[in-house]
Design a protein around this nucleic acid. Structure first.
Lengths: 371, 371
DNA sequence: GGCCGCGTGTGCAACGTTCTACGAACAAGG
DNA sequence: CCTTGTTCGTAGAACGTTGCACACGCGGCC
């Protein structure tokens, strides 16, 4: 048995003891456990951490005392010398379905480890993101999981120097940290292929402006747009992009712009489901039948897209798997790995009711009435 | 100036100093600041905490040093003697739109305070809830915000003894903690009134079973069901309830059960929007027009309900306001209040396209074809 | 002038844990 | 019997902060 190799730290979060003896309302400390088991504090610490050099007798003795007293380590005190057993997850907003799914995946992947995840929101500005991350750093998290961070690579590298870091949905070649991404260029290609196979030629992609700091790394929307461009050129088609914002209103506005042209598209590929919903509203307002007059597709497979009445064709990226992969990367980093890793999750095309072949019409005509 | 009254603790989370001097990669400590400002450690601590007994000169001097060095207090160390400036928020799941909205409200309300919110998920079992709360307690949170906790009153009281606690969406009369609730009995009544005013008499409410521990306190679904019963009786109608689960499938199943009766209802009041969506699917499968053949309404006003193609009549409860109110309660408790408080947020009826008058028919007939 | 009180600043003992360094006990090999 | 090694257990110094207890200096009042 190699000497330095420690066993995994003992699980200490699995519910409290049946009837913990309270010591005058005071929290039970490692000292109380040591007294009860009649061993040294260090010994208890060893057992708790699953460190090397404890006999089976010691193990059982201390464990019994811990159970009896309902001892739980004080995380604050722990952070002063060792770990906090806490992983910080930074999401942009709680309202993003993909991001919360990722967080759920993280949570699930962490349940069998001694680590606990805590979630904070970071918003869409570098300032707020920085603020949130620093708050986590103040709390001495052992790892950082940044989901779609609105932050330049230098800033992320700075944080990654302090604590193991994994980013999610940030496309690029990492140096000091790991990345887990959905292959959004592939996803965009799958969708373009689907539309082209259905006979579409005039396809508009609605996107949003890239942030100034997106250089070495790009966020999802930029990756999707690039994938769209590549795929269209691959089919010998000229990419046609309208930039608004990933929102219902943004999708509506972009669609209005596209559909009131003299030569409107037969398909609109919204960069996100949320804007595809706005696109559907625009189509309805213009009296266009979907998918007969216009195919509308999105990306993300949010819950609303699955609803019977919506039934949006989209691309699914498993947030669950993404979160799990991110946790694996992070654990490896916490264990000591330093060379960067890049994990790619495969997206999947989900064909539903809003896409189809464009209607064959001998003469171009529009009838904006007839609800 | 009263002696014991401390000023509010100084804000220390607002972004780092422009160019923090790093001391060999080590974190800047209060000692470094003290040396730099040539004062005692205690003095720096006083300034940081905004404690009583600092002269303006001291204030500016120390603040300058803090800025120059980019000092940030170590939360772990802080918890050993004082506060962690952390508020723990326990949600059931990240996928619940109302709960994430509450969390967002909490986050917003906390931005101008020195407190930081961290979110964890607690699931729908007492065991997991306990586990999550204990993880937060290990991290010495200064306050606990429990959103729809699946936990009996005794357990919550136990935690409330350790740390200031506010529950959200838990109906009852609290003793050791505060509650913030949406008036769900009123919300249910508003909806019943709306349906009855439209001429409905046969109204089915779809709910879910109450948990065994719901005695002194009840969760939202139970409060809604009670509100439904009261409102129906108020109109001289017999309450008709089907219990499945708050989910798309649950709503579908309940609707199928109700609609295949010999005397089916003219309106289904789903206890939650999510199940109303399943109800809509069931209606479609049976070839029923909504709202002509069947009115379908929900509760929660989730995002999907707002979509043009769904347009579900529902009840809105502002998660944002709820979160803000909860933070106010919690801050008061942290400041020392001990008598329990109960805050009630008013719900609002949102009439959309899925509710209307039942079709007048001389003879009862069903035509389940004709899409 | 001595005393009190007040306003400021400081010294230092906690707080609960980790982990290095070391000691004790014991076994095996020369 | 001494040395060497291995295994198990312990002592005790950190870690960064808080806040009590106290010291100091300065006016004002008897």
């Amino acid at each position: 048995m190699p000497k330095q190799r420690a066993k995994g730290p003992q699980q200490l979060q699995g519910g409290s003891a049946p009837s913990p003896i309270t010591l005058g309302g005071r929290r039970v400390t490692i000292l109380d456990v040591a007294e009860r088991a009649d061993v040294s504090v260090s010994a208890v610490s060893k057992v708790v951490r699953g460190a090397y050099g404890v006999s089976p007798q010691m193990q059982t003795r201390v464990t019994a005392a811990i159970e009896e007293l309902g001892y739980r380590p004080h995380t604050g005190a722990r952070t002063m010398r060792g770990r906090s057993y806490t992983v910080g997850v930074v999401l942009v907003e709680l309202t993003s379905p993909f991001q919360t799914e990722v967080a759920q995946g993280v949570s699930d992947a962490l349940t069998d480890t001694p680590y606990q995840d805590v979630i904070v929101t970071g918003g869409t500005t570098p300032e707020r993101q920085t603020r949130s991350i620093e708050a986590l750093l103040d709390r001495q998290v052992d790892g950082l999981l940044l989901v779609a961070p609105w932050l330049d690579a230098e800033s992320i590298d700075k944080f990654a120097k302090i604590v193991p870091t994994v980013t999610i949905a940030l496309h690029g070649s990492p140096v000091g940290f790991d990345t887990v991404v959905d292959d959004e260029r592939l996803g965009a290609r799958l969708m373009v292929d689907h539309l082209v196979a259905n006979g579409h030629r005039r396809i508009v992609h609605t996107s949003m402006p890239s942030a100034a700091w997106e250089k070495k790394f790009v966020l999802s929307h930029t990756a999707r747009r690039q994938g769209f461009e590549q795929a269209m050129r691959g089919h010998g088609l000229e990419p046609d992009i309208i930039e608004t914002w990933y929102s219902e209103q943004g999708g509506h506005d972009a669609a209005m712009q596209a559909l009131t042209r003299s030569k409107p598209p037969t398909a609109i590929f919204a960069g996100a489901d949320i804007s595809a919903l706005g696109t559907l509203r625009a189509a309805e307002e213009l009296g266009l039948q979907v998918p007969e007059d216009l195919s509308v597709v999105g990306y993300d497979n949010i819950y609303a897209s699955t609803i019977n009445r919506v039934s949006l064709t989209t691309v699914d990226q498993s947030g669950q798997h993404t979160g799990e992969a991110a946790v694996r990367c992070l654990m490896e980093r916490i264990e000591g790995r330093t060379e960067p890793k890049k994990f790619v999750v495969a997206p999947e095309l989900v064909v539903r009711g809003t896409s189809g072949a464009p209607a064959k019409r001998t003469k171009r005509q529009r009838t904006p009435a007839a609800s």
